[in-house]
Amino acid sequence: MKRIFLIALLGSAFPAMAHRLPMPANAPASYQAECSSCHMAYQPALLPANDWRKLMAGLNEHFGSDATVDPKNGAEINAFLERNGGDPKRLGSAGTPPRITQTRHFTHHHHEVPPKFWRDPRVKSAANCEACHSAAAKGNYSEHDIAIPELRE
């Protein structure tokens, strides 16, 4: 019991630590260059390797856009994502096509966000992590750093 209390206390003392998700240091330059022109270069731990594989196989119709990359960059990005994909048990199913925002991990952390926040023109899409988590690309998803004050709860 004492131990559980201590763990809970530590958790509340360092809440930001629970929301740190750094980009692996071995990320190839192509990952940033190719993926972050339309959206943030999501940390690979946000989807299991198997889902990244499915996404990479369908880049010609990537959520309504042609996001094909040349074969050399494609192979490099594939290898990086497969090496650093997240734990499927912890993340939960991402659906078809796989979406980070459909994983249990994501919905669990965002269930209190009202629909009107997602529709806010500054947010536009749940794919736009940086609208609220301004340092998301650096791996900081702490709820204490939500960028839009009136969306902070």
Partner: peptide
């Protein structure tokens, strides 16, 4: 500009 879908 702003990406029409992702808001980037």
């Amino acid at each position: 500009g702003q990406h029409a879908v992702t808001g980037k």
